[in-house]
Structures are given as structure tokens and as C-alpha cells.
Computed example of a mutant assay.
Amino acid sequence: METADTLPPTPGARLQAVLCTAAFVLLLAGTNATTPLLPVYRDALGFSSLTVTLTFFVYVGALVAVLFLAARPAIVRRAPLMLLAAVAIALAGDLLLATGSVSGVLAGRALAGISGGVGTGAASALVVAAIGARGRAVSATGNLAGAVLGTAASELVLQLTGTGAVATCFHLHAAACAALALPLAASLVARRAVNRRLIRTAPVERTDMRPILRRHRGALLSGALAWIAISACIVFLPTYFLDHRLPVVQALGIPALLLASLAAQLSSPALARRLPRLSGMLPMALGIALILAAARSGSTPAGVAGFVLVGGGAGFAYRCALLRLTGATSPAAQGRLASLYAAITYSVAAIAVLLAGMLAQVAGAGPVTTGLMIALAITAFLVRPVAARAGPAGHG
């Protein structure tokens, strides 16, 4: 069977891989740009707590629904069109988000979720079609790269422009989407015949993907646990360390976590050669233990180090699980599995965060956060035997 691995590398193929990866990172950067702006929505624009919460769940709901739809063979087969549509949808969402109104922000967040859902499988399929096995982890690595870029850029614009960042962030993102659209379209048109051959859907790929998910349920469990840890840290720990009067940990913790996650994914090939049994679960558990110890002792270095360990372990585990699921699949199957993997892990994380938030309304944020972190650490430690690992055997 013809694959990108059997074809000679060409400048056009490499350009497609770069542009499709850039498009996916840009899509995810746009969805994460809202995070630093949430206090502005609440304090300067008068959004209620319910409305601020809805900005998260509208996005996640749209994202997960579209990810499940995007796993259908008929959708993956049209990956080039889907990725271009995702960029256009993201641009439209930016214009709505830039209005700063409740209706505009909620509608824009829904479109951001749709664009992320449409783009995940499409970008993954197109990168694998261009450069083969080297591109299998793009949906995991691009996710974290987008989170780092979007959060950091939005925070920088916020510091420079104040409340003007509500519009400026999304105008800049819309401009970036428009600038990328033309070269991306040109690249995909130039390689349309090759992409059509490589992203065809063979009969076996039109079958149910659930047996693959069941066969690799340990990997799916460790990937979901990694995304729960990242989501829980982002949602609960800044306030947790504010209450514990550790402002440096509050300010640096999440950026350190995201950067460590990205660094662990980018360095994972080297780690796989040196530590083939590494899964990421143990660093996650140790990092959470350090975070809890820092909150109790008031140690800033321990707190920041804990975030680094959690981020590195979770990012590494998330990538390993995706590689275990996709194995040596074709670009079409890669796109379907990448969409399903993202849909499942995002859904589980959103449910976990929502339940913890509801419990915090009754029992208090501090005790619930402590209990959630302890539960995550214990679960990560227990999941180690079945988690996806760095070496070839761990990737199935």
C-alpha cells in the first residue's frame, strides 16, 4: 500500500506538513486566547459567573460534538477542504469574540470549538499524508503548542492594552488566519492528487473504530488522565495558590506546566531511546505530591517544580497514548483516531472539572481541589502498569 513513508520526500510534502501543522497550532492558539481574558469579561465587561462558566462549556460542547462527527470516514476523506473550512470558521469566530458582548463571545466560542473539532483530524491526516510516521503526534503536540502560544500571546496583549485586549487579541488572530489561508490553500491544491490517493478510505477503515479503542484502553485511560490533570491544574490551581498566599506559584505555575508539556512532547523521541519504559504517570504523581506539599509548607520552588513535573509527565503521556492508538495506521485512519482520541479525552476532562466545580460549591474550593489532586496522584501511580510507554513496545 502506498504511504508517505514509501514516497521520496519532496519540498511540496514538507511545505504541506509545515503549513498544516501551523494551521492546527493557530486554531488551538485561538481557542486558548480567551483564558487570560476571563477576569476582564467578569470585572470590566460585567459578565456573570454563569456566563463566564458558559464560555468554557459552550466551547467544549461544540468541540466534542464536532470531533465525534469528524471521525466519520466521509469527513476524513475531505481533509483538505475541512482544514481550510476550520481556518475560515476560526476567523468568523474571532470577529464575534472581538465584539466583547455576551452573545458575541458565546457564539464566537462555539465557532472556536467547531473549528478546533473540524481541524484536529484533518490536520493530523494531512501531516501524516505528507511526511508519514514523523507526523503522527501532530494533534497532541500541536494542541500544547497552541495552548502555550495562545495563552502567552493573549497575556502579552492584555498587559500592553488592558481591556482593549478583548478586541485586539482576536483581531490579531483573525489576521493570522487570513494570512495563512492563501499559502495553505495553494499547497493543498498543488498536492491534491497525492493527498487524494493517500487519504483514501479503504474498506477496513470504514469499519467501527471501537475495537481499536478497546484494545488500547490502557493507553486511552492514561491519555484521559493526563488531560484531566492539565485541565484541573488550569482551572483550580491558580485560585488554590492565591488562597495559600503563594503569588509566584500562582503566576508562574500554569505557564510552567504548559511549557513543560510542550517540551516533553518535542523531546519525546530522544526520551523514548533513553527511557523506553517511561510513561509519564510517575512524574505526574510526583509533581502533584510536590504541589500539595508546597501549598502546605509555603515553598515557592517546590510549587513551581511540581507544575513542571505535572506538565512534563502529562504532555508526554498524552502523546504516548496517541501514538499507541494510531500505530502504523494510514492517514485516513490516523485522522479518525486522532478525532476520537481528542473527543474522548476532552469529554472526560470536562466532566471531571464540572463535577469538581459543582462539589466545590458545596464543600469549598480548597478541600475539593486538595481531594481532586490526591485522587489524580493515586490514580496516576496505579495506572502505570497499563499506561502507554515511550518505547516501540509501548506504542503498540
Rank of each mutant, 00 (worst) to 15 (best):
R191E: 15
T207R: 08
C177R: 08
G150M: 06
R200F: 07
V166E: 07
Q159M: 10
T161H: 14
G162S: 12
R210G: 03
A185L: 03
L188K: 02
M209I: 01
A186N: 02
P183G: 05
R214E: 11
R196D: 14
C169R: 02
L158E: 13
G146A: 00
I212G: 08
V166T: 10
A175S: 13
C169E: 09
V189I: 12
D208M: 01
R191F: 07
L213I: 07
R196K: 13
V157K: 10
R196T: 13
E155N: 00
N195S: 12
N143K: 02
L180N: 05
D208P: 00
G150R: 02
L184K: 01
G164H: 13
T201S: 13
R206S: 13
T161F: 13
V194Q: 15
G164F: 09
L158F: 09
V157C: 12
L180E: 07
C177S: 14
E155Y: 00
A185H: 03
A186K: 04
A153I: 04
P203V: 07
T201N: 10
E205S: 06
V157P: 13
A147I: 04
L156R: 09
A190I: 01
A179K: 07
R214K: 08
T163L: 05
A165V: 04
A179R: 03
A152F: 05
A174I: 10
P211A: 01
L144K: 00
A167D: 15
V157S: 13
A178F: 06
L213N: 12
A167H: 15
T207P: 00
A179H: 01
R214I: 04
N195E: 10
L149H: 03
L180P: 03
L184C: 01
R210M: 02
T151F: 08
A185T: 00
L184P: 01
T151C: 06
A185K: 02
L198R: 09
G162I: 03
T168C: 12
E205P: 08
A153S: 12
I212R: 06
A181T: 01
V194W: 10
T207Q: 11
A153Y: 06
L156M: 12
I212F: 04
R197I: 10
L144P: 00
V194H: 13
A165E: 11
V148K: 06
R197W: 12
A147P: 03
E205R: 05
F170N: 15
L184T: 05
L158H: 12
L184I: 03
I199D: 07
N195A: 10
A179F: 06
T161E: 14
A175F: 09
A147M: 09
A178H: 05
A190V: 03
S154H: 08
R206N: 13
G162L: 11
L184A: 02
L160T: 11
A145D: 02
C169K: 07
N143Y: 01
P211V: 02
T168S: 14
R206Q: 15
T163M: 05
L213G: 09
A186L: 08
C169Q: 04
